[in-house]
Design a protein around this nucleic acid. Sequence first.
DNA 1: ACTGTATTTGACGTTTACGTCAACGGAACG
DNA 2: CGTTCCGTTGACGTAAACGTCAAATACAGT
Lengths: 150, 150
Amino acid sequence: MNGDGATADTMTIRQMCDAFDVTARTLRFYESKDLLAPIRSGTRRLFTRRDRARLKLILRGRRFGFTLDEIGELLDLYDIGDGQATQLRRTLEIASAHLASLEHRRRDLDEAIAELKAQMEWGEARLGRKGARAAPRPLPETPRPAAPGA
Amino acid sequence: MNGDGATADTMTIRQMCDAFDVTARTLRFYESKDLLAPIRSGTRRLFTRRDRARLKLILRGRRFGFTLDEIGELLDLYDIGDGQATQLRRTLEIASAHLASLEHRRRDLDEAIAELKAQMEWGEARLGRKGARAAPRPLPETPRPAAPGA
DNA sequence: ACTGTATTTGACGTTTACGTCAACGGAACG
DNA sequence: CGTTCCGTTGACGTAAACGTCAAATACAGT
């Protein structure tokens, strides 16, 4: 048989590192933060399907700039199972706030993409018509200082 | 006349703090990183329209989890003016990579929003039909350990 | 001139999210 | 049985992005 502790449903730490492109240190760190809870075979960690699902969510949260603490809250959402109704309501409140945050980010993101595309088209136009002397492209509008005596 | 150094087009550091909800330390820090370049009236900083436009972009970049160094690169995009064609091409390459990154984030974000909404609907359904015994909601699929001898 | 408040420049502290050793443990191989 | 890998647990280091505190300066109003 293959010597390592991995079964059909569990993975060793190295397999996890390869599958998700993270370091072992990172996985141990997440465990210390209670984001993951691999089982043990002797002293060694074995990561379950649940750990993999959670890690996937952690990595996505990270790409959005959530802190690990915030991600921990979100993870609990996927992990209720049998909480009381009160606890469930509270969780839904947190989820609702996070959803609003995500949708706000989405609007920002759309705006950023549109502006970046516009900038790039401007740049490409300059490369195309080499001699073109366009006016220095306008910067987005920003708050003006308020006249105190108005 | 109002005593401070602010004119119709410039703002003092405090006005900036109020307008953008950042601390003075942050503004000075960004200046030290060459992200902002306020002019001086004596020793005091006066932030121009350009500084405000750049700060707006910095803050948006931050919300997406870009580092300040990355944001610096993006800012240069909005700031070429008269670079050589080679430099402009290089800048467009960087921009293109950032655009791809932004669009990837957008896809991730859409997925995250969809999953979060689904979770919330599941939770609300449990609150509604109090006695409902649904199967423990499925977790998203993840990589399985590969059978080494296959 | 005096006082008070806003600003400036260092310098050092802090938090987050890991990286980097060091020292040890066990198991698999020859 | 010795060696060679992983793997584990601390302990300490680090980079980014500021916070905090101190000491000095600069104006503004009286």
